[in-house]
């Protein structure tokens, strides 16, 4: 899961990047409204964590402009202004959730997972494909009652494919999900992760669609 965090406080920004990373989220960070809008225009994110008070304006304006342009990316407002009226304003401006500072890191991660899965039209907290169950909260994978041992990146690739089994994910889609901007992407990283997943789930599980990408094999 790839999330954009818009926050101007360097310590909190660092904490969110590392902390959400521990929860299996790929985090990109920006500190201003302008950077946030540029990032959102250039990349697709599963969710955005948006601070309200930013050095060059209000996060609420970013939110309104984004919703005004038809963007449906799930957005969680993260802010110190947490009067009821502030919450109401934020939610009515198009935010999907609202969390006041200071917050609990685990709760923030859970809320991000929640708005992200709602964003793709899914309600259940776990992902299912055939006999494989993925729990993004615990970052655990179970197949037929047996726990699978997956690395963080393998888990992310599998989760991306299982979100909509049958839909094709291109290599660059998957790379985007796995790596933030600052991270160096090895040219064949996705192939390596898919290879490892096939070893653990069986060759048939992930189908290569030549020239387009990968998908979970349809049917039972």
């Amino acid at each position: 899961m790839r999330v954009l965090v818009v926050e101007d406080d360097p310590l909190l920004l660092d904490g969110l990047k590392v902390g959400l990373g521990l929860a299996g989220v790929t985090v990109d960070v920006v500190s201003t409204c302008a950077d946030a809008e540029a990032a959102l225009a250039a990349n697709a994110f599963d969710a955005v964590v948006l601070d309200r008070m930013l050095p060059d304006g209000s996060g609420l304006d970013v939110l309104k402009r984004l919703r005004g342009s038809g963007d449906r990316t799930p957005i969680l407002l993260l802010t110190a202004l947490d009067d009821t009226t502030d919450r109401v304003d934020g939610l009515d401006a198009g935010a999907d959730d609202y969390l006041g500072k200071p917050f609990d890191l685990d709760e923030l991660a859970a809320r991000i997972r929640s708005v992200a899965r709602r964003g793709v039209g899914r309600a259940a907290g776990t992902l299912r494909w055939r006999d494989v169950t993925l729990d993004p909260a615990a970052m655990s994978a179970i197949r037929d009652g047996v726990a699978l041992s997956l690395s963080r990146r393998e888990f992310s690739v599998l989760a991306a494919l299982m979100e909509r089994p049958g839909a094709i994910k291109s290599r660059s889609d998957l790379e985007d999900r796995l790596y933030g901007w600052q991270e160096e992407v090895e040219s064949n990283a996705v192939e390596v992760h898919v290879h490892h997943l096939r070893v653990k789930l069986g060759r048939e599980a992930i189908e290569t669609v030549r020239g387009l990408g990968y998908r979970m094999r349809d049917g039972e």
């Binding site: 904490g15 969110l16 110190a80 200071p102 685990d106």
Partner: peptide
């Protein structure tokens, strides 16, 4: 409040990272 809560949020987040 904003200026105090933000560093507190950073503090808590970093502390939770240290624990986890």
């Amino acid at each position: 409040a904003h200026e105090l809560r933000t560093p507190l949020a950073g503090l808590k987040t970093q502390a939770q990272i240290a624990v986890a």
